[in-house]
Design a protein around this nucleic acid. Sequence first.
DNA 1: CTGTTAGCGCCTTCAT
DNA 2: ATGAAGGCGCTAACAG
Lengths: 379, 379
Amino acid sequence: MKKRVAAVEDGKIRLAGGPGGEVKTASKAASKTVRKTGGSVGKTRPGGQAVRMIDVAKAANVSLMTVSRALNEPERLSKETRKLVLDTVRRIGYVPNHIASNLASARSNVVGQIVPSIQNSLYSHSIKGCADVLRGAGMQLLLADSGYSLEEEEALIDAFIAQRVCGLVLHDTVHTPRAVQLIRAAGIPIVETGDLVRAPLDMAVSYSNFNAAKEMTLYLAGRGYKSIGFVCLATRNNMRARERLKGYHAALAALGRERNPALVREVEGGLTSGAHAMVDMMQRAPEVDAIFFAGDVLAVGALFEAQRRNWKVPERVAIAGFDDLDILRHTVPRLTCLNLPRLEIGRRSAEALLQRMRNEPVEPARLDLGFEIIQREST
Amino acid sequence: MKKRVAAVEDGKIRLAGGPGGEVKTASKAASKTVRKTGGSVGKTRPGGQAVRMIDVAKAANVSLMTVSRALNEPERLSKETRKLVLDTVRRIGYVPNHIASNLASARSNVVGQIVPSIQNSLYSHSIKGCADVLRGAGMQLLLADSGYSLEEEEALIDAFIAQRVCGLVLHDTVHTPRAVQLIRAAGIPIVETGDLVRAPLDMAVSYSNFNAAKEMTLYLAGRGYKSIGFVCLATRNNMRARERLKGYHAALAALGRERNPALVREVEGGLTSGAHAMVDMMQRAPEVDAIFFAGDVLAVGALFEAQRRNWKVPERVAIAGFDDLDILRHTVPRLTCLNLPRLEIGRRSAEALLQRMRNEPVEPARLDLGFEIIQREST
DNA sequence: CTGTTAGCGCCTTCAT
DNA sequence: ATGAAGGCGCTAACAG
């Protein structure tokens, strides 16, 4: 295997292939590569026909319906027939065609989930929860991210409904009119998870961003901090951020404190962003003694910056975060934050969909999974 | 809105709902909640019939095929007919049924991806890359995680093939015999992404774990470290970890250094785990002057532990990580690591599948996307 | 350019 | 407990 050291730039050393580079393999082992070439665009059966239910039926000398029943309502068959059929299925390697099954039964076993960003670990917890419950029920998850765009969400909802998903989990709680219309027309159950909205399209499973932000602010005040800064993501197209900001303001009002614009910043997500926000705020409002970072990894970025500048946390400035990311309990000092039931939100959302699909009433239609304040050394 | 402070334990303050608690909403706003109850198990059309292509055809006074063409091969229709049909589609709110389309055309627009863990941010990059490219091509992503289990992977492959996915992206490069058989029988294109395997089932898009680990070890030696420790995940059921360990050993051999068991640890993933591994290793082999953490977030955990103990990095011990997680460039000191093209792997995998589905040859069948060594302050 | 016919693979309904 | 007929909503193939 040839090694190629291509460049050393900015501390980066490129190796083996690198962007655009393709290392062809000429070894004997590689030439053994098993490759199937057949199949035109997306063809399911490239060369040989796929095994169908009727093939199983013939091989087992029963009718097609008996095979169908062996697979879907095994208890309706006699023990012997069932065994015969299932053995045959295994023997000839039959894999049911859910596409055909869905079409014939007007039933689907696929649920769609749309999150703002697949890469954000917050959402991946809710995805995981959802996927787990669905799989337990023999269903599958169709996933996509909207990139925080309403229009993209609409397009995805359209695509998912075209795919005839039997339910939808949406993180966003704001939708385009057409998206709402599509959902209504499809008549499928929907769960919104991003915030505990007052009037969900169908069902909501979440916590209250407003309450979470408010309580954290009150908690900080309770710890004796007099001048509490607040940093969040842009509220413009983000209902969650907006609710958090409202919660912060509500807390100030409850405390009888005045709003101070110098103590509020809206920023982009990311570690760097959190660092800048902290530094900026401390310049503009030197009296600030605690900052509540109500978004993403902002708090972590701020803490790292404090380490770099040798600012003592919490003595010089206290830092609180929003989500309980894994690292928050490992930093020095450990970070105070909210613990939000992301995984559970995913699980309960899927469960709510399943319930609804079984025609069971889902109460309440708004499920508040709450939150915790995790007090650690940074405050 | 009532506030409930339920408990204060271990620094945790539970609020609003909490585990198992459900806050029912009795406000007027909540009672306005729009709810659709209809639909038996997974029914796509709960109450009213969904609009079908034939309905559009009747409304536009054309044949069903004309509607089909307006949607799928618009260029084959006259401008007027096309406009008429598409307007009608919009007017009556028709959403194509891809399920039926797939069945009739023996074509699918869904690709399946199986990763070891949805929550792991490493995989989410590859998921994102894949999802983006697919969406650009009008396709969807069916996602699931195997929990690092071969058997689970097999079950998922079965389920995905039942779903008639038109292609599969697998992170694992080791599969059960039945999984391989299922894939072969399905005759769909497959990409394996976890390692640059010698003989992929079909195609491989990745980097070489062996080379990456080897080069990093050589790089550390080049920086003057004499006693380089190696920490990775359990190699037992993890080919990637095994390859990395091999790479480390290969580097030692190339350097003419002897293997020292005290300098090698296999551990679980996680920050805590990395911290322990470092402490253990430094006790058992006090001469160690650099540790290469070849997995997950181990290096970060170790660094935090070093901060806590006031061990200078890299003076007391140098630390290098594997993946270039976002935080690595923000810690104090910043962490040296490998930069692996996770996103690009996802993108290229999807592209390879699309190519294969268009019947274009995919060369090479093993695509090496390489890696970079990012040198920072920790070494 | 547009329409007609015959299924895709399976499930629903009704019969035996 | 098992089977036969018809159709789910759409597209391929062929016709005009």
